[in-house]
Amino acid sequence: MRALDLSGISEADIRACKEIATEAGVDLKDCYQCGKCTAGCPLAEGMDLMPREVIRFLQLGALDVVLDAKTPWICAQCAVCSSRCPQNVDICSTMRAVRIAAKRAGKRPVPEADIFDDEFIANVRAHGVSNEQYLAAMYNLKSGHFTQDMGNATRMLKRRMVGVAIHNTKGRAEVAALIDRALGADEGGE
């Protein structure tokens, strides 16, 4: 863990960190920094802040450190951290809340993770279901990783796992309306 100048932290930062915790259903004071979350995290080696540190910086009110961190975007949401926490701190939902807060602040430290989720929801909004082949194609296009999994796409085609046909839910307009309503409710809930 690095040194941090606490004098740069404003009241507003502390409040924002508390709001993130509230959104996640977490009382930050519960965490006594044992590190069990980090020990079990299967992606910790690829993270810039350890899961334990994300909680620590939230405790300190270091909003920018948390919002700029790649960690919440690298998290795969497997919830092993929350499951093993001796204090029942839901670290996994905290990662979600940080990500959503970062996005609202116009930050996306791992663009690929953001592009993937946006394309996923756009796909569902358009068709009611996720069409994996188009999701993958759109993801490659927008992330600039044009050839990622191209070999696998060929192997899938050969096995007739995917084709060109797009699947649609009959009530896809209903699903689109539902998505807009939910996202609207989310904005309104701020």
């Binding site: 795969a76 979600r96 990500r99 959503i100 989720d117 946006d118 929801i121 569902v124 939910a182 996202l183």
Partner: peptide, 20 residues
């Protein structure tokens, strides 16, 4: 039926993760 939204929904909005 429609897509469950999976982690993409819960990482986008808690409301969406409930609604889908």
């Amino acid at each position: 039926w429609n897509c469950c939204g999976t982690s993409a929904a819960s990482l986008t909005s808690p409301e969406l993760a409930i609604a889908l």
